[in-house]
């Protein structure tokens, strides 16, 4: 098992790098905040990040494993359909996740 001193140093390293990446860009951007390009990137980044992160969470999707692939594909369709229909964020998430859990249990059984 790793020593406490090493673990503390490792946590401090990870925290320092992560916090720097999250905080320092604000200081840099404060100088060019009003430029048209920063405004454009500011408008595009929330949608872009949500799309990229969606794909990232699905990076292990494998059509060759139907008992994993089908629940994921159906749950994604349920989430999108529910959301276009009701526009209720918690409902879409709970509905999609429930569909995923139900279908996974069905295919595993």
């Amino acid at each position: 098992m790793p020593e406490t001193g090493y673990l503390v140093a490792a946590v401090a390293t990870a925290v320092a790098v992560t916090w720097a990446l999250r905080a320092l860009p604000f200081a840099v951007l404060a100088r060019l905040r009003a430029g048209p390009l920063t405004v454009l990137l500011g408008a595009a980044m929330p949608v872009g990040a949500a799309v990229v992160l969606t794909v990232y969470t699905l990076r292990d999707f494998d059509p060759g494993v139907p008992e994993d692939a089908w629940p994921t594909a159906v749950a994604l369709a349920v989430t999108v359909a529910l959301h276009l229909w009701r526009r209720n964020v918690p409902l879409s998430i709970v509905g999609g996740t429930a569909a995923h859990a139900a279908l996974s249990a069905l295919l595993a059984g």
């Binding site: 969470t57 989430t79 959301h83 964020v89 879409s92 996740t97």
Partner: peptide, 19 residues
């Protein structure tokens, strides 16, 4: 237990809302 699909669903619905 498959509940991590909720993370996918969160990012998906926020992408739709943004669009």
């Amino acid at each position: 237990g498959g509940l991590d699909f909720a993370v996918t669903a969160l990012f998906t619905v926020l992408a739709i809302d943004g669009l």
